[in-house]
Measured scan of single mutants.
Amino acid sequence: KKVLATKVLGTVKWFNVRNGYGFINRNDTKEDVFVHQTAIKKNNPRKYLRSVGDGETVEFDVVEGEKGAEAANVTGPDGVPVEGSR
């Protein structure tokens, strides 16, 4: 997949743990970017399912997906594990 941007910060708009996807709002362009649970690189080690929490700040790369921009290599800021869904 073509990389459109790297090390982008954003805020998780919503994430559905059961369906394994959601959207992140980019801090720079204010665009919403699709995020799938497989894109989460560093999950909260205390959680079994990969997820990001609503309102959580995350860092990610933006790649060209089949339906437009999507997140890849999702971590917390500066590469720490994500907090995950509460």
Rank of each mutant, 00 (worst) to 15 (best):
S51Y: 13
N19E: 12
R86W: 11
E56C: 11
A39K: 04
W14N: 07
G22P: 02
G10H: 00
F23C: 07
D61F: 07
G53Y: 14
V3G: 03
A71T: 01
E64M: 14
V12E: 01
V3S: 06
F15T: 04
N16D: 11
T57I: 15
K13H: 02
K13P: 01
T6E: 12
Y21C: 05
G68I: 02
L4N: 06
N27M: 09
T57L: 15
G20P: 00
D78Y: 12
K13D: 02
P77W: 15
D78S: 14
R18N: 11
R46D: 14
S85K: 14
K67W: 07
V74Y: 04
V33H: 04
N19F: 15
A71Y: 02
V80A: 14
K1F: 06
K67A: 08
A5M: 06
Q37K: 15
D54Q: 15
K67N: 12
G79P: 12
G79S: 11
N73C: 05
K42Y: 10
Q37T: 11
F60L: 05
F60T: 00
V3L: 08
T75R: 13
N43Y: 14
E64Y: 09
T29C: 01
Y48G: 15
W14Y: 05
G84Y: 08
E31N: 07
L9Q: 15
T11Y: 06
V63G: 01
T29Y: 00
V58R: 01
F15Y: 11
D28R: 01
S85E: 11
D78T: 13
V63D: 02
F34P: 06
V8Y: 00
N44Y: 11
G53C: 14
G55Y: 05
G84R: 11
Q37Y: 15
G53A: 14
G79I: 11
I40R: 01
E59P: 00
L4W: 06
K7T: 02
V74N: 04
A72K: 10
R18T: 09
A72T: 10
R18Y: 08
K67V: 06
V17M: 11
G76H: 14
G20C: 07
R46S: 12
A5Q: 07
S51C: 12
E64F: 08
G55W: 07
R50P: 11
P81K: 12
K2N: 06
A72F: 06
Y48H: 14
D28I: 00
Y21R: 04
L9T: 15
K41T: 13
P45G: 14
L4S: 06
I24D: 04
K67C: 08
S51H: 10
T75Q: 08
S51D: 10
K67S: 08
A69I: 15
R26Q: 04
A69M: 13
T38W: 03
F34Y: 08
R46G: 14
R26A: 02
R46P: 11
E66I: 13
A39V: 03
K42F: 13
R50W: 10
L4V: 09
D54V: 15
R26D: 02
K67T: 06
E59N: 03
G53W: 11
G68R: 05
E83M: 13
G53S: 15
G79D: 09
I40Y: 05
V82Q: 10
V62W: 00
G68S: 04
K7F: 01
K2T: 06
F23E: 06
V12M: 06
Y48Q: 13
V3A: 04
E56D: 12
N19W: 12
E56I: 09
P45Y: 09
V52T: 05
E83H: 10
V17T: 14
R18K: 15
I40D: 00
T38Q: 08
Q37C: 15
V33F: 00
R18C: 07
G55I: 02
E64K: 09
G22S: 02
G65P: 03
A39R: 03
R26T: 02
T75E: 06
R46W: 10
G68H: 06
G10R: 00
V52A: 06
V8A: 03
D32L: 02
E66C: 12
L4K: 06
G55N: 08
H36T: 07
G65R: 01
T29F: 01
V17H: 12
V12Y: 01
H36A: 07
T57H: 07
E83K: 14
V3E: 04
E31Y: 00
G20Q: 06
G76W: 15
V33Q: 02
K1A: 03
P77N: 08
G79N: 11
P45H: 13
W14L: 03
T11R: 10
N16V: 02
V17S: 12
F60H: 04
K67L: 09
P77Q: 09
K30G: 15
L4I: 13
